[in-house]
C-alpha cells in the first residue's frame, strides 16, 4: 500500500498551531542565548512568589493561587445569587420580577472594575451583629465585588435555561398539583441544570480572568505582586514576568473554555 500522509483540515490546522508554538519556543531559545536566560533565571527564582505570594512557596498567602481561590469563592456566591435572581426575573409577581430585572440590568451594565471599586467603599470594614464583629477584609470585598456582576450574568444563563424547558412541563406539573417552588425543584431545575453548565463554565473562565482586577482592593494577588514585590526588578526582566503571568491565566482558562465549548455542543445535540 502506498503510504501518504493525507492530513485532514483540522490536522493541518493543528500542525500550523504547533508551528506557531515552535516558533515561539525558538524565539525564546534565541533570546535566551542572547542574554534572556539570565532573565528567565530570575523568573524561575521568583516563580514561587508569583504563584503563592511567598518566596519559598509556602504557606499560600497570595499570588496566582489567591486569584484561583478568589474565583472559586466568588463563583460559589454568584451561583447562589444568580440562580435566585434569574428565577426572580421569571416570577409572576411584578413586585419580585421588576426589581429583579432592575438589579440584573444595573449589574450587567456596570463595569467590573468600577463595581469592585464601589464595593470597596460601600461595604463597611466590619459589621456588628448582636455584638459579634464580622470583619470585611479586602478579600471578602473582592469576593462580593466580583460575585455581583457574575451573578447578574449567571441570572441570564439561568433564565435562558429555564425558559428553554418546554411549557408542557410546567402545565403537566401544575396539573399534578405541584407548587411553583416544587416545580422548580423537581421538574424544571433538574432539566435546566445540564443546559446551564456550559454557560456556567464560560462565566467561571470570565470571572477568573476578571480576578486580575482585584489588585485594586489591595489583596496580594498575582498582579499586586507583579506591581509591588517585583517592581524592583529591572524593566527588562519585568517583561518576562508579564509574559509568565499572561501564560498562567491562559493555561488555567483555556482548558475550561475548551471543555465548556465541547459541553455546549453536546447539550445542543440532545433534544430533551
Amino acid at each position: 500500500m502506498n503510504m501518504t500522509f493525507e492530513l485532514s483540515y483540522e490536522g493541518k490546522k493543528r500542525l500550523v498551531i504547533g508551528g506557531v508554538l515552535a516558533a515561539i519556543a525558538a524565539w525564546i531559545a534565541v533570546d535566551a542565548m542572547a542574554g534572556g536566560a539570565e532573565h528567565w533565571a530570575r523568573v524561575f527564582v521568583r516563580l514561587p512568589l508569583l504563584l503563592t505570594g511567598q518566596g519559598d512557596g509556602w504557606p499560600i498567602t497570595g499570588g496566582f493561587a489567591l486569584n484561583i481561590l478568589l474565583s472559586i469563592a466568588s463563583m460559589a456566591v454568584a451561583t447562589v445569587l444568580g440562580t435566585l435572581l434569574g428565577i426572580s426575573t421569571l416570577a409572576q409577581s411584578p413586585y419580585l420580577r421588576l426589581p429583579a430585572f432592575f438589579i440584573m440590568n444595573f449589574l450587567r451594565n456596570s463595569p467590573w472594575l468600577v463595581l469592585l471599586f464601589a464595593m470597596l467603599f460601600i461595604l463597611p470594614f466590619q459589621v456588628e451583629v448582636f455584638g459579634l464583629r464580622i470583619p470585611f477584609p479586602p478579600f471578602v470585598k473582592a469576593v462580593i465585588g466580583l460575585a455581583l456582576p457574575t451573578a447578574a450574568n449567571l441570572s441570564e444563563v439561568v433564565r435562558g435555561a429555564v425558559q428553554s424547558i418546554h411549557s408542557g412541563q410546567w402545565e403537566a406539573a401544575r396539573a399534578l398539583g405541584y407548587t411553583t417552588p416544587q416545580i422548580y425543584r423537581h421538574v424544571i431545575l433538574p432539566q435546566a441544570l445540564r443546559r446551564m453548565i456550559p454557560g456556567w463554565m464560560n462565566l467561571y473562565a470570565l470571572l477568573t480572568i476578571a480576578t486580575a482586577l482585584a489588585t485594586v482592593t489591595g489583596i496580594q494577588d498575582v498582579l499586586t505582586i507583579l506591581n509591588t514585590s517585583l517592581a524592583m526588578e529591572s524593566e527588562r526582566v519585568l517583561v518576562y514576568f508579564y509574559l509568565t503571568t499572561l501564560f498562567l491565566f491562559f493555561a488555567y482558562c483555556y482548558p475550561i473554555a475548551i471543555f465548556a465549548r465541547r459541553l455546549e455542543r453536546a447539550v445542543k445535540g440532545d433534544n430533551i
Binding site: 480572568i209 480576578t211 482586577l213 491565566f249 491562559f250 482558562c253
Partner: peptide, 15 residues
C-alpha cells in the same frame, strides 16, 4: 480571549 484585558493593557504599556 483567555487572558485578562487588564494584563494585556499593562503589558502593552509597560513592556
Amino acid at each position: 480571549r483567555n487572558t485578562p484585558p487588564l494584563l494585556q493593557m499593562l503589558f502593552a504599556y509597560f513592556t
